[in-house]
């Protein structure tokens, strides 16, 4: 019973590592990256993957900032530390909450869309048609999405940092009774530039993870509608797992 359970975990780990290896192999051939990407295509992907994700990202982070402030302001006021609330919210937003939650939301929305689109191209032989026409699917499909995700995720995180902190500010001042000046002064005292830039570095990595996992799963989608569905689900799950795991190591590296 125990052995079977351990075997199951082991198989899952091996499959995850195999997938990671294959994703890296996507990048092993430098040829598709030498060609200048079609900028129209890149801009289209930036609009589709980035701009269209802005409302859901803002909504998620706004309420996260608000609820976090509700929770911590109550405790901080109890210990007389209300002057730290603004700083704590801003640091949490900049370092962890904004990049990670933006990554998760975009993985759910964009990663799934990338896999579904490329997966349906695969099962309808459109990927083969590209190859027969001497066009690398990596150059034509993966590179523009990779560039778009790596550029747009940090931009989304900047908006998320701002809106999350605004959410916190509104709750702190209107609900918890913390003064506006105290909140803003706390942000000024506690936060440093690295809190924001570190989050942006994370966002670039998360963007790459979302694009590469989404493309990889799409390019390797099993045949049929069911196959595309499974690949899409797998893409979201793998992206989110990789975002959380890489977030830990990035935090260790960036905020030692």
């Amino acid at each position: 019973m125990l052995v079977a359970y351990l075997e199951k975990i082991g198989r899952g780990m091996i499959a995850l590592l195999e997938n990671c290896g294959r994703i890296v192999l996507l990048l092993s051939d430098p040829e598709p990256f030498k060609r200048r990407p079609n900028m129209n295509h890149v801009l289209h992907q930036m609009a589709h993957l980035g701009v269209d994700s802005l409302p859901i990202v803002l909504l998620t982070i706004l309420f996260t900032g608000m609820v976090m402030t509700v929770q911590i302001s109550h405790e901080f006021i109890k210990y007389g530390a209300q002057s730290s609330v603004g700083g704590v919210i801003a640091i949490a937003m900049g370092r962890e909450l904004a990049p990670v939650l933006t990554g998760v939301v975009v993985a759910g929305r964009v990663g799934a869309a990338i896999t579904a689109e490329i997966g349906s191209m695969k099962v309808t032989e459109q990927i083969d048609a590209l190859r027969v026409m001497a066009i690398s699917p990596i150059a034509y499909l993966v590179v523009p999405r990779l560039i778009a995700c790596m550029m747009m995720l940090p931009l989304l995180v900047v908006f998320a940092d701002v809106i999350g902190t605004i959410g916190g500010y509104l709750v702190a001042t209107l609900y918890s009774g913390i003064g506006s000046f105290t909140f803003l002064q706390s942000i000024k005292v506690f936060t440093v530039v690295n809190d924001v830039t570190g989050g942006l570095v994370k966002a670039v990595v998360f963007g790459a993870i979302i694009a590469l996992v989404g493309c990889y799963k799409g390019l390797n989608a099993p045949a049929g509608a069911e196959g595309v569905g499974k690949a899409t689900t797998g893409s979201v799950v793998a992206s989110i797992i990789l975002i959380f795991v890489s977030n830990y190591f990035l935090s260790l590296m960036l905020y030692r």
């Binding site: 191209m121 459109q126 048609a129 190859r131 027969v132 001497a134």
Partner: peptide
């Protein structure tokens, strides 16, 4: 291979048009 493929065209069973 892409250099060779430039001299080839293929009509797929289900057309494989870019939708």
């Amino acid at each position: 291979l892409n250099q060779i493929r430039l001299r080839m065209g293929m009509v797929f069973q289900y057309s494989a048009l870019f939708d």
